[in-house]
Simulated scan of single mutants.
Amino acid sequence: MSTADRLVADEQAVRMYVDVRLGKNLDQRPTEYLLLGDDQGFLELEEAPAAPQSTDADIRVSGRVIFDTWAENAEGAIYVVLYPVPEERLAAFDAWFEEEHTPTLLGYVGWLRTRLIATDEGAVTRVAVHYLANPAAMESDERTLSVRTPRTDDVLEGAWASDIREFVALSGK
């Protein structure tokens, strides 16, 4: 599949909602992913035309999927990155993500699928949702190389890059 085939046309765009619930002793819902690492809580993804009914999210971002490498049976672990990319840098960021960052990640056999969401509002302007066979993909050489591409330093330059948030979670299914 070529890069052009991975772009999602506006009329075909899927709306996604990403909810993050942080805290201890939370009851896991069957559709959620259990956060790993220092974060305790759950992450939930939903494709829907309207916002989910739940209102207990600590972080909720929503938007339309603008890039998708689509893969069948992409379950196991999930890696979500919240990017507060400034408006004037969005075009350069999107091009880097699509042309350099994602192809490098997909070079690892356990990196199954990547989606990029253009958010509707708020400080977070892009959300990357990566589907992994297991959390070991986070330690791969490809992940390290994906942020050492020719344009990485230019694209991720600025104070905003220190506000990037990352979450890794295991499937609750």
Rank of each mutant, 00 (worst) to 15 (best):
A123R: 11
E98D: 06
L34T: 15
L106F: 10
G110E: 13
L112E: 01
V8H: 01
K24P: 03
P30F: 05
L7S: 11
E44Y: 04
R89S: 13
R115L: 11
N134W: 03
E47R: 14
V147Y: 05
D19T: 05
E121V: 10
G110F: 09
E88R: 14
D58Q: 09
D154M: 10
Q40P: 00
A48K: 04
D120A: 12
F67W: 12
G63T: 05
M1A: 14
R113I: 00
A9Y: 02
M16H: 06
I117K: 06
E98T: 15
H130A: 14
S171D: 09
F93D: 06
A74M: 03
V129E: 07
D56L: 08
G37R: 08
I78C: 05
D38Q: 13
E75N: 07
T149A: 09
L116T: 15
P135D: 06
D153L: 13
T149E: 12
L105Y: 06
R89Y: 00
S146R: 00
H130Q: 11
W70K: 12
I78R: 03
G172E: 00
A133S: 11
S162M: 12
D39T: 07
L156W: 10
W96N: 08
E44K: 08
V168L: 15
E98L: 02
G23D: 05
I66C: 12
A128M: 06
P150K: 00
V65Y: 03
P30N: 09
T149S: 09
P103C: 10
Q12G: 01
M16F: 05
V155F: 02
R143L: 15
E46K: 13
L90A: 10
I66D: 07
I117A: 03
R165K: 13
A133F: 08
A161N: 12
T125Y: 06
L106Q: 11
K173Q: 07
D19S: 08
E11D: 15
E72I: 11
M16P: 01
W70D: 11
G37A: 13
D19I: 01
L156V: 09
Q53I: 13
D153N: 08
F167W: 05
R143M: 13
G23L: 06
R126F: 07
L43N: 03
V65H: 03
V155E: 05
L116H: 07
I59T: 13
M1R: 13
E157H: 13
D38M: 11
L45Y: 01
H101C: 08
L105Q: 00
F67L: 12
E121W: 01
P86A: 11
E87P: 03
